[in-house]
């Protein structure tokens, strides 16, 4: 019943499919060069063009150090591109804002706040009353499986628990775009699967736009509308793959689905090709 045997592949321009509304994020000819301690500069990103539609779930895959985090930081407004522009709803991004919620690879929790204090922080900042903010936060903490740990400090949590607090902290203030940098990287397989499902539920319910960095091809295919495959440094977009699998996606069914399997194998092959390129050059 599903059509494409060979996944459709966009040219690197990131042309919109045109079916769904307008672009939420546009990244146009973005390059990023870091000045490294005087000697020579390092080109982290080169000529990135990508459009993320409103409500789309887009994953970024690529070898370590190819600039995935840097790309998220540019969209977040934390880092300015050396060339090109990033736009949000047509407006050039010049700084961070609560419309874009980052979940950092390093968690970056506030160590002087408890789990509850961390999750409540953004809501309190937006002027939500303490009682209401705490009620909402407690629901999120329960969702990420940390019920009973509300009053723990970050240093008393494991890596995976910190990661879940970081996710809850960002979800709490309801950004319309989520910028997630390997958010499930430190989790065990079971929790990972659960949180993937929870994230999909939230995404389907709230129609958030998600830009999601991961090292797991399965995860990217399972979650995404589009998978962006990047090359080794300098990071360029190698290919953009539209994932044409029906939603809602049920993990158990999908794992047996031949289209799903084909996407996974094809994308893995693309990443391997990239590795060969790097070795030969």
């Amino acid at each position: 019943m599903q059509v494409p045997l060979r996944p459709e592949i966009d040219t690197g321009t990131g042309a919109t499919s045109g079916e769904r509304a307008r672009a939420m994020i546009e990244i146009a000819s973005v390059s990023k060069r870091f000045e490294t301690s005087g000697r020579k500069s390092h080109l982290a990103l080169s000529d990135i063009n990508l459009t993320v539609d409103d409500g789309a779930f887009v994953s970024i895959l690529g070898p370590s150090g190819c600039g995935k985090s840097t790309l998220l930081y540019i969209v977040g407004g934390f880092v300015a591109p050396s060339e090109g522009v990033a736009r949000m709803k047509g407006t050039t991004i010049t700084g961070p804002g609560p419309d874009r919620g980052p979940v950092f690879q390093e968690f970056a929790l506030f160590p002087w706040k408890t789990v509850l204090g961390n999750v409540t922080y953004g809501l309190r900042q937006q002027g939500v009353k303490r009682g209401e903010a705490e009620a909402q936060s407690l629901r999120l903490i329960e969702m990420v499986g940390l019920k009973g740990f509300e009053h723990f400090y970050p240093k008393e949590l494991s890596g995976g628990m910190k990661q879940r607090v970081a996710i809850a902290r960002t979800l709490a203030y309801r950004p319309s775009v989520l910028l997630m940098d390997e958010p499930f990287g430190a989790l065990d397989a079971h929790t990972r699967t659960r949180l993937q499902n929870d994230l999909l539920n939230i995404w389907e319910r709230d129609r958030k736009t998600v830009l999601f960095v991961t090292h797991s091809v399965e995860e990217a295919v399972f979650l995404s509308d589009k998978v962006v495959v990047m090359t080794r440094a300098p990071g360029r977009i190698k290919q953009i793959v539209d994932i044409d699998l029906p939603r809602p996606r049920i993990r158990a069914e999908l794992l047996l689905d031949s289209h799903y399997q084909k996407y996974v194998v094809d994308i893995e092959r693309m990443i391997d090709d990239g590795r060969d390129d790097a070795e030969h050059s």
């Binding site: 700084g95 950092f104 970056a108």
Partner: peptide, 14 residues
């Protein structure tokens, strides 16, 4: 102070 901590704050609107 970890820069990402400040970024998190900036994203929340501080």
């Amino acid at each position: 102070v970890e820069e990402k901590m400040l970024w998190s704050g900036a994203a929340m609107g501080l």
